[in-house]
Amino acid sequence: MTETIDQHQEGKRDVTFRVFRFNPQVDSKPYFDDYTISAERGITVLRSLNYIKEHVDATLSFRAFCQAGICGSCSMRVNGISKLACTSQVWEELDKCREPGIIKVEPLRSMPMIKDLIVDMDPLVDKMKRYANWIESTMPLDEMGKKEFLVSEEEFHRYDKATDCILCASCVSECSILRANKEYVSPAVLLKSYRMNVDSRDSIHDIRLAELVKDHGVWDCTHCYRCQESCVKSIPIMEAIHAIREDALECRGPKDTSGAKHAEAFMEDIEKKGKLVEATLPIRTNGMIWTLRNLLPMAMKMIVKRRTPPPPPLVKSAKGIKIFRAMFREMTEHVKQDHQKSHKK
């Protein structure tokens, strides 16, 4: 018994929480408050914040509800990374502190601040609405409730992981492009759009897809994988983003957006030369006028430094290109057959 108490004692230490504070009604700018509390091993960041609110400073504001990693309310940045406070162990966070013993707690990024650790989720909800992220049923109204809507196991697996999303917005906070432009659709919204688009019960796939390929949509993702890495439910968000792109190319072709044209250029070049023809990539993506307007000054600098990509005729094909091309084309036949099979289904 004594041993247990000793171990318990060893598992207790003073921890400082450096918490972001901002009340726009009173404060001209944000600041940090330090709260030092005695914390036990096993305590979470959320439990610590609750303790601070109850015993130290009742004005500290944050959102929380289930305390079990289910509701997604308590997402915030702990030591710089967006995550759920309720599933973040203080002891593990202590290993990640920039200043020893000080855990930094801040609100999510790229979302309007309301107070302290609370951010406004409305812009995210508005984007969910803009991209119609719900099921618009294919079943006529008069048949509803009269017959079953069967979903195959194979279909379910396509969106099983995507339905794990608890809308905590950690991915939104970590997104590189959203940080650069608030209009960007954002990873959580793309994930939800993917989930709806692959559901056979939904009737507005084409309308949703048409919205997704517009400016600030699916093609603006820069593949940084920060969303996926920060997902508290380990959802492969980039796979969903790539799947929307694959679907867009199949349903709409490469014509309507520069992102699609850019992606298709890789396929063309690899088949032709086994190598990317970088010199003409901007033209094939955005046309001659855009290229001249946007890249001419930089191209001049590159010419001076002899670092311009070679013009297409001077791009050497990969060694053994003939047999490579034959194999590439054989795979094209396989893909065609796959499509025929899936359409028959």
């Binding site: 694959e246 070049d269 690899i270 795979m331 893909v335 796959d338």
Partner: peptide, 16 residues
């Protein structure tokens, strides 16, 4: 060796 697909070919054509 040939171009890897530059993080694009994987969704343009997963099999290629």
């Amino acid at each position: 060796g040939t171009c890897c697909g530059g993080s694009n070919l994987d969704y343009v054509s997963p099999k290629h």
